[in-house]
Design a binder for these strands. Structure first.
Lengths: 151, 151
DNA sequence: AGACCTATCTATAACGA
DNA sequence: TTCGTTATAGATAGGTC
């Protein structure tokens, strides 16, 4: 549709590609509006350029959500169901992580340790001693710094 | 584009409207495919005829879900229902909880304590000492139990 | 409903400023 | 780069079968 015929394959020259994108994007948007008016159609059109810029058109008689619901019903394809499952999975994972950290924290604070065996208690003691050593060293560092600044 | 020019307004004759719908729908689908190939664009196009029939095109390099997520991010418009928002909210909450527990755990183990001030270091020392006392008491309990069972 | 036809209209590729 | 401009390719309205 222009001075020369072009093959339908990726336009290698990036500035031509950009120009063509912009023109054709406007063309498609216009067509979408036209079919909406001419034929009582309901259109949802979302275009992302390679650059990341987005353009969209949703027929004014409807909403994107409405179209997606109808899409879901008509095609049977999952949209946010799958998304929901992913989210639920992540929540499960986070909860487990949370629980085990909470238990570990309580143990370090000396709570809920009745169920631990002797070996576990020894490991816990080690961890606490190591922590205590580090913290006391750091305290001394801070203390020395303060002294030096004062004197 | 044809034997006669037409105004862009609803086509009153229903059979003409249907025919025009079918032709233009094909035209738009073709354009969507073309811009995808020519310009590396990613398109999601869903069309409902007044009759309820659906047609769609999603660029093969992506998925509708992916496009909707990007749409959500780019436009800020909500697409998902309240449930979805709640799930996202819960994930955020869990992640924060997770992060703060992780930090607390590291502190108790004597890691990453450079940023703590003297007061915080003292509180940490207290916590560790309390924990250590509890753990050693429990160790003694277990030890006494073992002795009693042996003798 | 399609599928094909074709005169006409529209979109746009290439170019220029 | 982003406008206009213009020659041409492509889309399609109105038809026929």
């Amino acid at each position: 549709m222009g001075r020369g015929k072009i093959e339908i394959k990726r336009i290698e020259n990036s500035s031509n590609r950009q120009v063509t994108y912009s023109k054709r994007k406007n063309g498609i948007l216009k067509k979408a509006k036209e079919i909406t008016v001419l034929c009582d159609a309901q259109v949802s059109l979302i275009i992302f350029a390679a650059s990341g810029k987005m353009h969209d058109y949703i027929s004014p008689s409807t909403t994107l959500i409405d179209i997606l619901e109808r899409y879901h019903k008509t095609s049977g394809k999952r949209l946010w169901d799958a998304k929901h499952e992913n989210l639920n999975g992540e929540i499960e994972r986070l909860k487990k992580e949370n629980d085990s950290m909470q238990i570990e924290l309580r143990h370090l604070k000396g709570d809920d340790i009745n169920s631990l065996n002797y070996k576990e208690l020894m490991a816990l003691e080690d961890a606490l001693e190591t922590g205590l050593v580090s913290v006391r060293e750091k305290q001394m560092d801070v203390y020395r710094m303060l002294r030096r600044n004062v004197c």
